[in-house]
Simulated scan of single mutants.
Amino acid sequence: MANNTSQHILGTSSNLLGFCLFIITSLHISNKSESSMIDEYTSIIALLLTFSSILSFVSIKTTNDKIEMKIEKIANYFFLTALIGILGIIFFVLIKFWYL
């Protein structure tokens, strides 16, 4: 294994995926999903986190070091994009529910 970040990406992205699914569920239970776009954005972030998890898992399981590094780099980009998206969701939630 050339790099050790795939194990960290896999665990963290799966935890954040649970966070996104919790937000989507709580918006639908409280009937706030019709009046906001937060659940759609959160679904996109959940998809990015899922891709990141899958790619980091594949990176862990591969035996070719070149392919491992390439897949791990792509998983890093998906993960970073998802983190920035989560920051955006937090701002959306803050703005949406601050002015109720």
Score class of each variant (00 low, 15 high):
Ile60Gln: 01
Glu72Gly: 12
Ile71Met: 11
Phe91Arg: 02
Ser56Gln: 15
Ile86Tyr: 14
Leu47Pro: 00
Lys70Arg: 13
Lys61Arg: 11
Gly85Asn: 10
Ile45Leu: 01
Met69Arg: 06
Ala46Pro: 09
Ser56Cys: 15
Asn4Leu: 10
Ile67Ala: 06
Phe22Pro: 04
Asn3Gly: 03
Lys70Asp: 15
Ile60Ala: 08
Ser33Pro: 00
Phe78Asp: 08
Leu21Arg: 13
Tyr77Glu: 06
Ile54Cys: 07
Asn64Arg: 01
Leu49Thr: 10
Ile9Thr: 04
Phe91Ser: 13
Leu47Asp: 11
Leu21Thr: 08
Val93Arg: 00
Asn4Pro: 01
Ile23Lys: 00
Asp39Cys: 02
Ala82Glu: 01
Leu80Thr: 04
Glu34Gln: 12
Ile44Arg: 07
Ile89Asp: 01
Ser26Leu: 06
Gln7Tyr: 14
Ser26Tyr: 14
Tyr99Asn: 05
Thr81Pro: 02
Phe79Val: 02
Phe51Tyr: 13
Phe91Met: 07
Tyr77Pro: 00
Ile44Tyr: 09
Leu94Lys: 02
Asn4Cys: 07
Ser43Arg: 09
Ala46Val: 05
Ala82Tyr: 05
Phe97His: 05
Ala2Lys: 07
Ser52Gln: 08
Ile54Glu: 15
Ala2Tyr: 03
Ile74Leu: 15
Phe97Asp: 12
Glu34Pro: 01
Lys61Pro: 00
Asn15Glu: 08
Thr25His: 03
Ile67Pro: 01
Phe19Trp: 11
Ile54Ala: 14
Tyr77Phe: 04
Ile89Arg: 03
Ser56Trp: 05
Phe78Met: 03
Gly85Lys: 04
Ile9Met: 08
Lys61Phe: 13
Ser26Thr: 07
Phe92Ser: 03
Phe19Thr: 13
Ser33Thr: 05
Phe51Cys: 07
Asn31Val: 04
Leu100Gln: 03
Ser33Ile: 07
Ile90Pro: 06
Ile23His: 00
Phe97Tyr: 15
Thr63Glu: 13
Lys61Thr: 13
Phe92Trp: 01
Leu27Thr: 03
Glu34Asn: 14
Ile38Pro: 13
Ile71Phe: 12
Tyr41Phe: 01
Ala46Gly: 13
Phe22Gly: 05
Lys73Met: 14
Lys32Glu: 15
Val93Gln: 06
Leu94Asn: 11
Met69His: 09
Leu87Phe: 02
Phe22Ala: 10
Gln7Arg: 02
Asn76Thr: 07
Ala46Tyr: 04
Thr5Lys: 12
Gln7Ala: 12
Thr63Asp: 14
Ile89Tyr: 00
Tyr99Ser: 08
Gly18Thr: 04
Ala2Leu: 10
Lys32Ala: 15
Lys32Leu: 14
Asn64His: 02
Ile90Ala: 03
Thr50Ser: 11
Thr25Gln: 04
Ile45Phe: 02
Ile29Gly: 01
Cys20Ser: 05
Leu21Ala: 03
Met69Leu: 09
Lys61Ala: 15
Leu94Ile: 14
Met1Tyr: 03
